[in-house]
Design a protein around this nucleic acid. Structure first.
Length: 545
RNA sequence: GGCCCCUUCGUCUAGUCAGGUCUAGGACACCAGGUUUUCAUCCUGGCGACGCGGGUUCGAAUCCCGCAGGGGUCACCA
């Protein structure tokens, strides 16, 4: 078995999703592998080192299930693919996707619903040769022989004719249609053959269908492609990772809290949709996301767009996905697309279904963020945050944005982390006078009240020091002033002032580096919060003492 | 249930095709110690696997057979 076709034959791979939802991670990985193989052929790399055959990667929509297919889903899939950097050489026109609003390539149409006459031509050939028969308005293919085919990862597979049913290749014609629709089995074979596809790379769930496809290739007189089936990506509990996981998570969370009724009212018919959803009449991912978010919970990332929304870097997702069921053979784990194109080899794909490990993905993403410059992180972070979180009307200066980026550059794992960790930036609530409730009890005890309120004493000194810092309140100036304060008063270390300050301005003992935190809050607000804190705890100390 | 596929640390895996160099290597997670203004980082160390049972062989994670467990498929869905 060889993954290398004859030198004169260009390599053609394709990604052929049915547009019935977003791009699932499993689909993303399949698309990646197909894209990589085409790249290798184009650039004479990997298994194609000595072949100048050329290659191309086709995007085709398998929309023979008209009830579930949608243009919106086509757009989402295309956008996710582009976000990942997996552009295609040939594909259909997709409205609303810049760069792809007109079709490219001359092997189209690239939508099965637009290829109906082609299927009927080939059906006629099959009929003439006696390979098919009618059944209740549908057309079935007659399986008469055992089938043996070779798969790049599973090796040689043989299935007996008795174990393959006579399967439907043309559905019964629906009312109002001119032509009947083919089933997936017939459409893929005809399309892949006519589009000169050499490598059919897809999920293992299709392995059991492949004997049917091989039989069809033979009956139609088409040369068979090299099949390559990739294992399914599983959840940590061993179940298949699927869109339904969102619905499951939402129902479970709602049930655990005895969630009475959704607080969402501005969406048309939400309550009815929620009721149906709760009663398991559907697994609407949109409803699931709304429910989960209303409960303050994260939505499990399943689709490429989910990972994008959380703030994963596309190259990291690709890196991690490529490693799920494949590896270059040594200890190398973190690499970019170019290295992947260099090293990839279909025959090294594992057969067992891997489990998706979010911790490892998170760590890879953290490392990738840490490796870029603060300026790069700054650009990325704000490009990510601004469309998502808005600016609350108050525009931040570039300088302030950069300070924020510095504060989170080496502790953000995903781009949404900083927004979650920076509640200390929330504007003060003028309605409520500060009280002990604003402060974490453990933190106040340890950093303010301990040793006869030593923390409060140090905090007062820090306050005066900060009040003397210039009004631009730059991080460097703050840092220098606090260090001088520590030295002048013979304090143990910077923590002596940093910790009480953290508690005073944020209510907790955890924030980014203190000088960045204070600079972000601003001078006036910093002083105001310190004074409020001192007032609260001085009184408390007096009452006790 | 029929048919097909899979099985190395908790997880992803290297090693299996060409049996010895594997008292099984790496990464993530976890645990302990150290550095550090908190958190995080960083450094050092640690825990931890060949599903089970037979067989072949001087020798098996690697080859053979059986079992168990997991997955897929059996649609006019893809």
């Amino acid at each position: 078995m060889s993954a290398t076709p004859a030198p004169h034959k260009p390599v053609v791979t394709r990604f052929a999703p049915s547009p019935t939802g977003n791009l699932h991670v499993g689909g993303a990985r399949t698309a990646l592998y197909a894209w990589v193989v085409a790249q290798q052929a184009k650039r004479n790399l990997g298994p194609f080192k000595d072949h100048s055959s050329g290659g191309s990667f086709i995007l085709r929509f398998e929309d023979t299930d008209r009830a579930r297919s949608s243009a919106a889903s086509e757009r989402q899939i295309a956008e996710s693919l582009l976000w990942l950097g997996l552009d295609w050489d040939e594909g259909p026109a997709i409205q609303g996707v810049p760069g792809h609003e007109t079709a490219t390539g001359d092997r189209g149409p690239y939508r099965q619903s637009e290829r109906l006459p082609i299927y009927h031509d080939h059906l006629a050939r099959l009929r003439d040769a006696g390979h098919v028969y009618d059944d209740d308005g549908a057309v079935r293919f007659r399986v008469t022989q055992d089938v043996t085919f070779t798969d790049a990862v599973y090796g040689q597979v043989t299935v007996k004719a008795d174990d393959i049913e006579d399967f439907v290749i043309m559905k019964a014609k629906a009312d109002g249609d001119d032509l009947a629709f083919p089933t997936f089995h017939f459409a893929v074979v005809v399309d892949d053959a006519l589009m000169d596809v050499t490598h059919v790379i897809r999920g293992v769930e299709h392995l059991a269908n492949t004997p049917k496809h091989a039989a069809l290739y033979d009956a139609l007189g088409f040369p068979r492609p090299l099949w390559c089936h990739t294992p399914s990506i599983m959840n940590p509990d061993g179940s298949k990772m699927s869109k339904r996981d969102k619905a499951k998570a939402a129902r479970k969370a709602a049930a655990e809290r005895s969630w009475p009724a959704p607080p969402v009212t501005n969406i048309d018919g939400f309550h009815e949709r929620w009721a149906d959803f709760r009663d398991k009449k559907n697994d609407d991912a949109g409803i699931a996301s709304i429910v989960l978010r209303s409960l303050g919970l994260g939505v499990p990332e399943i689709d490429a767009s989910d990972f994008r929304a959380t703030g994963y870097l596309p190259k990291v997702l690709l890196n991690y996905l490529s490693l799920l069921g494949w590896n270059p053979g040594g200890d190398l784990e973190r690499f970019g697309l170019d290295q992947l194109v260099d090293a990839f080899d279909l025959s090294r794909i594992n057969k067992a279904n891997p489990k998706f490990d979010r911790d490892k993905l998170l760590e890879f993403n953290r490392l990738a963020i840490a490796e870029m410059t603060t300026e790069q992180f700054n650009d990325l972070l704000w490009a990510f945050c601004e469309p998502r979180y808005g600016t609350d009307g108050a525009e931040w200066s570039d300088a302030k944005k950069l300070i924020y980026s510095k504060a989170y550059h080496d502790r953000a794992r995903v781009l949404s982390d900083p927004a979650k960790a920076s509640s200390f930036l929330d504007p003060p609530d003028d309605e409520v006078a500060p009280s002990e409730n604003h402060y974490d009890p453990k933190a106040t005890k340890k950093w303010l009240m301990k040793n006869d309120t030593q923390g409060l004493t140090d905090l007062e000194k820090a306050r005066d020091t900060l009040a003397a810092v210039g009004d631009d309140f730059a991080p460097e100036a703050i840092e220098a002033a606090l260090e001088a304060c520590v030295a002048e008063h013979g304090m143990k270390n910077l923590g002596s002032v940093a910790q009480p300050l953290r508690v005073a301005v944020s209510g907790s003992a955890v924030t980014p580096p203190i000088h960045l935190t204070l600079a972000l809050i601003g001078k006036a607000e910093t002083i105001r919060r310190i004074d409020a804190c001192l007032a609260v705890f001085k009184d408390a100390a007096k009452a006790e003492g």
